[in-house]
Design a protein around this nucleic acid. Sequence first.
DNA 1: GTCTAATCGAGACGGTACGTCTCGTCTTCAC
DNA 2: GTGAAGACGAGACGTACCGTCTCGATTAGAC
Lengths: 210, 210, 210, 210
Amino acid sequence: MQSRRTASRTGRPRSAAADAAILAATREALVELGWSKLALSDVALRAGVAKTTLYRRWAGKNELVVDAVAELFDELELPDRGSLAADIEGVVLQFAAILARPEARSGLMAVVAEATRDDALRERIRASIVDRQMRLVLEGRARAQRRGELPPEPDPTESSRTVDLIFDMVAGAVVHRTLVSGKPADQAWVHGFTRVLLLGLTAQPDGGTA
Amino acid sequence: MQSRRTASRTGRPRSAAADAAILAATREALVELGWSKLALSDVALRAGVAKTTLYRRWAGKNELVVDAVAELFDELELPDRGSLAADIEGVVLQFAAILARPEARSGLMAVVAEATRDDALRERIRASIVDRQMRLVLEGRARAQRRGELPPEPDPTESSRTVDLIFDMVAGAVVHRTLVSGKPADQAWVHGFTRVLLLGLTAQPDGGTA
Amino acid sequence: MQSRRTASRTGRPRSAAADAAILAATREALVELGWSKLALSDVALRAGVAKTTLYRRWAGKNELVVDAVAELFDELELPDRGSLAADIEGVVLQFAAILARPEARSGLMAVVAEATRDDALRERIRASIVDRQMRLVLEGRARAQRRGELPPEPDPTESSRTVDLIFDMVAGAVVHRTLVSGKPADQAWVHGFTRVLLLGLTAQPDGGTA
Amino acid sequence: MQSRRTASRTGRPRSAAADAAILAATREALVELGWSKLALSDVALRAGVAKTTLYRRWAGKNELVVDAVAELFDELELPDRGSLAADIEGVVLQFAAILARPEARSGLMAVVAEATRDDALRERIRASIVDRQMRLVLEGRARAQRRGELPPEPDPTESSRTVDLIFDMVAGAVVHRTLVSGKPADQAWVHGFTRVLLLGLTAQPDGGTA
DNA sequence: GTCTAATCGAGACGGTACGTCTCGTCTTCAC
DNA sequence: GTGAAGACGAGACGTACCGTCTCGATTAGAC
């Protein structure tokens, strides 16, 4: 962004409204057509913008969709429901609700698929979506520590890996439930899942099978 | 399959070799090109087969890729490593190994993405891949029950849902770790994940927090 | 043709009805689809015959259409209307009537077009259609000589060339009028044409301009 | 042509060179392959143009070939050889020379065949080829009238029909001689044909049969 | 108030894959 | 051996998007 401005100080500036219109048009087209039938020429048409304008700002379909989808996840927030278990349930339900929306479903999985062959794209996804929402895990843990539900961070090395694991487990399970199994991640399922997850993270190893 | 044979008893029969050649060519092309650049005309060329032949057997790219990828998962089997935890770790590692292969990575996620807008395709994925591998969860539990590691099926209603949950958690976590986080699901990660999962499933609720 | 019969005296004999059915189906398809959209698979279907059978008897689309169209011209005959001029008018009207039928229009011009690049095909057309109908010119002249309307063949070398010229002028003018100009070769036109033709063939050179 | 320009004043203008390249490539391909084996993808390749460009300008093979062939006839012109008979012979010989070229032979007959099932195409042929060359007949008659070889237009209604008849007779006979009879329309043949035509048009009815 | 330069819309361009069609051949079963 | 059925390799069809390009027409800030 800055580098662009540095290079050119003159000429007509880019329309700020165009960006928003394009991203909104992308989500609209994703809902109606899905990723594979989404045409950038169609997006441009919907946004009331020339194809040239679109290509000046995004390298291609993948980059555009990542940005369009990333915005959806920004509305996630950690509710304060009084206990760690309830807080997790709340945020997982929110996550499930977003994944139930067609623009997220089609778009997210498609760019993940594309990212398997494109490291730059995977990095963009990680930065725009994953890392951005990692805050929820961190904030949840901090709040549980303040409440005394979790001990104050015993091993910093361990904990970093645990945060990743939690994220993989939560996001992975919800995505798989919703998109692969094709069943809703509803109240009951989220409750069962949260119970197993939390128990697994906090129980004593000898408490189970002895 | 049967219906096709029933309907027509005459005419030249379809070449059995062609099916295998096409599926192999599809996987080869997936490795080199990924899903989005995979062209059916190219697959036909690699398989030494006319495009017509390919379209006579599969409705399109999605159906073809589902079948090509499904075969990859048939090589999964439940190892007998002496304990439930070790068995799970073994099969999760196998699963991770398959997902590390590019033909599985690109193909699987792409068809899952497409399935978000195509119920018939999702059903095909469920039947060809998910249900087919569900056997691993069932067999693992049965073996653990024989060993006495798990109680002999206490609640039949509950247990069916638990099998689904386990599958969603295992498959989801490994997929997310591998494809989204972009880090390997190696020995250490699988060990940590299995520990949390098993503990969550077997620990007493009061053993952890109370 | 003959050699085929000679070579095989055993096995199931060819269905004689099939030939007729195929030629009739070809004309039917020509009416509905025209030459360029005529598919041999469709002709076989209409004739209730396998594609194999069709290809055993004709080398391809062109040969088949020539035979199918040639049959149409066999119904031409020279009427006896009392004078040479009236006889010519009669036969030209018959010719125009055949060219007004869609199976003749599409088929004839198309094979003529193909024949421009295929000498064997042109020879087949000449033998099956042109030479076959040349009889009409010869018979008309003979009848006119019997009536005394024309002198008894003065120059044999010249006359052969004249027959060809007459045929080219008659067939050419009717075809051009019908297919290129797109106007009907009706009673009035045929009368005007015949008058010019006959006058040109019989008038004294000095009768016109000098 | 004009309407297109009027409708859109914006966007990248169409390449003028492309039209010429495509028509030339069409004629080249007609010579080598004939109409039925002429592939638009091949024409595009030869013209160094994308298939899209070709389809943007012509609706299909027929329209393209009509335009490609029509250009060939524009080189016809009425020579001044001193007398009406000699002028006609000259222009008929030119016409025969064009029809001796393979690009004209294949193309012209094929589109005429197609036009039997497509009124718009016939109209295009009439406008692009027939009407365009009708000028030769009109100019020839005018010149003959100036010379005193023909009386100054006695009956306007009659004459219009006579022009059509002359055109049908000339074009029809040459086409039939060249393409159907498969013999050259050489000096001798043209002389004989012209003699009959002119005599038929100018002789007194009573001069022949009495 | 020019001048200057990057923006904008529109749409044509060379490519490439799509999924369908027809070709003429080949393979099988039934008679 | 013939005939019906239909799969086969081949390749053109006409369409749709791709991402690039060429236009003339706006816009701004720099002068």
